[in-house]
Amino acid sequence: MTSVLAMADCGVVLGGRRVISGVSLEVRGGEVVGVLGANGGGKTTLLRAALGLARLTSGQVRLGGCPVGELTEAGRAALAAYLPQDRRVGWNLPAWRIVALGLPLISPSRARPNTLAALGSVGAEDLAERGILDMSGGERARVLIARLIVTGAPLLIADEPAAGLDPEAQFQVMEVLRTRAALGAAVLVSLHDLTLAARCCDRVVVLGQGRMLADGPPAATLTPDLLASAFALDGALIPSAMGHVLAARRLR
């Protein structure tokens, strides 16, 4: 299958600091790719660069085969949707109206059936009329994921979609994204939880100080050596009946 997202030798400099460099990455329809790395490793910048939000100082990003800079605003929105790390919401809109923001070209009342279906797919149909600022972090996260998937974009990019959620909600959010991938979408997510990444991603990309350290299936990629060099951890992924589990301690 052709790549929905293709990044070739990408570099970004922010405030004089080289945040990512030499990053090459392809994401195809049907796969969930996790971006892993320590804090400050360049995960968010990689996702923003993939969307054309961070200006490249080198390399090229193609979305749906077209250089991202040449796409119109509408063209880019038709190809990719983004859930940023910042979950602040300005106004206390009811959940279904927040989800309707994923379909800005049709009026909210006409988009309502789609928004309810999207809320249903994240198990949040009962939240439809609640104000988003009156919700818990987990409820808000599910509504924002519904906004992401209602777009129907072939590439879904989410920056730490599982951050701050309880374990069940983390699995639920990842399951929703996996379902979209099974329906053909390409999914790119940044994650901190290596166990979650090992269980839910088809591939992981590991960043260290802005450089790509590894790219491959989780179990084969997250080796003890890589855990030591990328995360300063002494440990390993242990196979279990329910998938791999990280067992690790700080490397001294």
Binding site: L51, L53, G90, W91, I98, P104
Partner: peptide
Amino acid sequence: LRMLTLGEETAALSGLPM
């Protein structure tokens, strides 16, 4: 204005000529 509810970056990627 409605799209800005979710912040500048989400709005920038919404497809509207922000």
